[in-house]
Design a protein around this nucleic acid. Sequence first.
DNA 1: CGAGCAATTCAACACCCATTGAAATACGGC
DNA 2: GCCGTATTTCAATGGGTGTTGAATTGCTCG
Lengths: 189, 189
Amino acid sequence: MAEAKGLSDTRQAIMRSAADLFAELGYRNTSIRAIAADAGCDPALVPHYFDSKEALYSAVIADTVRPAEVLREALRRGDAGAAEWLLRHAVADWEDPEQGRRILGVLRSVLDLPVARERMSRALLPREVADSGADEVRVWLVSSLFIGIMTSRHMGLLDETLFKEGGEGAVDALAPVVEALLGAGEPDV
Amino acid sequence: MAEAKGLSDTRQAIMRSAADLFAELGYRNTSIRAIAADAGCDPALVPHYFDSKEALYSAVIADTVRPAEVLREALRRGDAGAAEWLLRHAVADWEDPEQGRRILGVLRSVLDLPVARERMSRALLPREVADSGADEVRVWLVSSLFIGIMTSRHMGLLDETLFKEGGEGAVDALAPVVEALLGAGEPDV
DNA sequence: CGAGCAATTCAACACCCATTGAAATACGGC
DNA sequence: GCCGTATTTCAATGGGTGTTGAATTGCTCG
């Protein structure tokens, strides 16, 4: 075997290095050469396995977690416990090394690359949520809060102890906030 | 040719174009050549007036608004009205073209340039606030929310009607959130 | 006028970038 | 053994980057 491209060992190494570097430095600041160096192969292999740098990025974030589904579930519950449930889900995603890396990979490049922006936009607001109308504002605001938290944390602004031990600190601190947020956009309809 | 304007006015043009482009595209995606083209001058003038691209960036964001002072004032008030007061201040800053441009200029490049990260960090948390200890977490969380809001909005994720008419929509939607946030980090100490 | 000085232009440097195509290597099937 | 395919290397291309230093303009003042 070993004729299918997808099974190549270095191909996976490239993917992993790319995910790491894109998350750490962002799309623009990550060079194909740096990826190849990290993966321990020749730079020419990158456009060989993946067609281009942008295609590589797309492949890296192809199966990013879709926070919208979690948000939708939280909205469906609707009661007070939804906030804490949502927060635990989010924190768990952030803490999971694989998921966290993917999320950061998108977040870190979302301002540089149109495709990243579009993906995040679509991931955050699929049609089902958009169609619900009244929920839209709440979804965006919760997303905004999470984006801010992740960005701040990535910038080293947030105390890391907030996220230790299953993120109890973060959950406790943010639960009332998310609670207020989930009820915020609710009109009198 | 044109009349002599004391201190070069192309220098100001460079500064203005740089502020625009840095805010729009970020530090890394903005080239000196693009700045010069926008300002209508030769690229060599940029390193001539300002020593380097990074120095130009520093000059552009030299007098960025310091949200920490506003935050501190809000914390000093401490009552429920503080949240709304803080929000109105923040929204006003975002809407002001000059301030908004500066803020975006920092936010957009804070992940690319260490100096931007350091500046934002220092701007958000001066020593007075840091020394207060218990307030620190609250300051960071409020900052995170604002960072998220600004980022989301810059990504085009947020409904712009939220910010029309003095940002009444945003204030209304976020007031209870900020309220919860200002009380969140309060420990039993 | 012409010297002096700032403002500006021009051409070039050295470097990094993504991408390409041809050559070289490893390796399983016949 | 050889063949074909997949994998990898090598060298090069064309373009963009920040920055530099010398040359050129434009203007003010002696």
